[in-house]
Design a protein around this nucleic acid. Structure first.
Length: 187
DNA sequence: AAGTATCCATTTA
DNA sequence: TAAATGGATACTT
């Protein structure tokens, strides 16, 4: 089901760059990772009053998520772009706590489609609000990382942020944390 | 460590 | 409609 209503774009500043949030009349509809050239883009038009609040909520939630994976307050989501199946998957994703991971198979089981494993993976890839809808917490059964539409670097970073030591090494930008830990261990 | 068989919602033709 | 396509998995070699 396609809803071609116009969306309002707003920048979300984080320590990793500027994300783009898109709001519809009922909430946050899409969240995009920073682009390399984001800083060169013009600032978007001022959003209407309601979106100003959502933008603030989104900014706080995203920054909390990028620090410890646990945003305290989320903006309303507009998930109308999804099919029923996709929305069930996305709802299930939101039940996974930071620090936990799931398998594509167990995700499929969660929504009572135990065999729709690949389809569940597809729905993860179609997640319009990455990070806040934590599709990055789904790993392959082999304990490998699986895929990520925003790029595997981001998936590794997000998992590292949430405390998965296995992925921390792949994230040089988290070196402050690593160095602090090494110093602690050496002492 | 590869290759294959089967899986199922979506997309594309 | 039909075929191709994945953020998969469990089997085989």
């Amino acid at each position: 089901m396609m809803h071609s209503a116009s969306l309002i774009q707003a920048p979300i500043r984080t320590r990793y760059g500027i994300f783009s949030a898109y709001f519809s009349e009922i909430g946050l509809a899409r969240l995009e990772f920073p682009r390399k050239f984001e800083l060169l883009e013009k600032t978007p038009d001022l959003p209407p009053a309601q979106a100003i609040r959502w933008r603030k909520q989104t900014e706080q939630a995203l920054n909390q998520a990028l620090r410890n994976g646990r945003p305290s307050d989320l903006p309303p989501f507009d998930l109308r772009s999804g099919t029923d199946f996709q929305r069930r998957v996305w709802a299930a994703l939101q039940t996974i706590d930071a620090g936990e991971t799931l398998t594509y198979a167990s995700l499929a089981a969660l929504i009572h489609h135990p065999r729709a494993v690949r389809a569940a993976g597809g729905a993860c890839g179609a997640n319009p609000i990455p990070v806040l809808i934590p599709c990055h917490r789904v790993l392959a059964a082999s304990r490998k990382i699986g895929g990520f539409s925003g790029g595997l670097r981001w998936k590794e970073r997000l998992l590292a942020i949430e405390g998965h030591q296995d992925f921390a090494a792949a994230c040089p930008e988290l070196n402050l944390f690593n160095q602090a830990q090494e110093i602690t261990e050496a002492a």
